[in-house]
């Protein structure tokens, strides 16, 4: 099977039971993506598949044959940090750092969803395509990523700071 991972083509051969998360961590040595529950309840394994955030622990790797996957290792070039990564450091958007890769990937996927006009449950009117990425929108949209250290305030501030210019969306796609 063939994947594009962080822009690089990768061939892999594995037990069909292997999750995308275990493929990354155990077979490909990409241990940035984390395992916290292995059942889609914590978000630590969040990666981007063709730009969309998913829980890699619930994904059988075989289902994603041929797809393009971005992990935390692919969020910045080798030399530095992405603006969001730098903001996480500045705002102390983590303590132990274990949920952090999932939070980062999730935030990148979230911003893309906002740009595409994907609604969230805090919207007053489902038919209204505008999204103002305020505190409630941001928290609701990030609620699939648990942080037991409780760095939520720093995470939210880091995302808000980084994507301050992205707080509006156009009409729904």
């Amino acid at each position: 099977m063939h994947f594009t991972i962080n822009g690089r083509g990768v061939d892999a051969d594995f037990d069909l039971r292997t999750s995308l998360l275990d493929l990354l961590r155990d077979h490909l040595g990409l241990t940035g993506s984390k395992k916290g529950c292995n059942q889609g309840a914590c978000g630590a394994c969040t990666v981007l598949v063709d730009g969309e955030r998913i829980n890699a622990c619930l994904a059988l790797a075989v289902q994603y044959d041929g797809r393009s996957i971005t992990t935390v290792e692919g969020l910045a070039d080798a030399t530095g940090l992405s603006p969001l990564q730098a903001a996480f450091v500045e705002h102390d958007g983590f303590q132990c750092g274990y949920c952090t890769p999932g939070q980062l990937c999730s935030a990148m996927g979230m911003i893309d969803e906002v740009r595409r006009g994907v609604p969230s449950v805090v919207a007053a009117d489902m038919a209204d395509g505008d999204i103002v990425l305020d505190h409630d929108e941001l928290r609701e949209r990030m609620s699939g990523n648990l942080c037991r250290c409780g760095a939520y305030n720093g995470i939210v501030n880091a995302i808000a700071d980084t994507f301050a210019a992205e707080t509006h969306s156009k009409e729904p796609a």
């Binding site: 955030r53 829980n55 619930l58 999730s106 994907v118 395509g129 949209r141 699939g144």
Partner: peptide
């Protein structure tokens, strides 16, 4: 949940979907 027709004509359905699970799971 994002489909404009669903959001306009059946907003209860769009809202029910986004009330469920997490964004990651809804994408899958």
């Amino acid at each position: 949940a994002s489909d404009p027709r669903v959001r306009r004509d059946y907003p209860l359905l769009a809202r029910a979907i986004v009330a469920g699970a997490s964004a990651q799971i809804r994408n899958m």
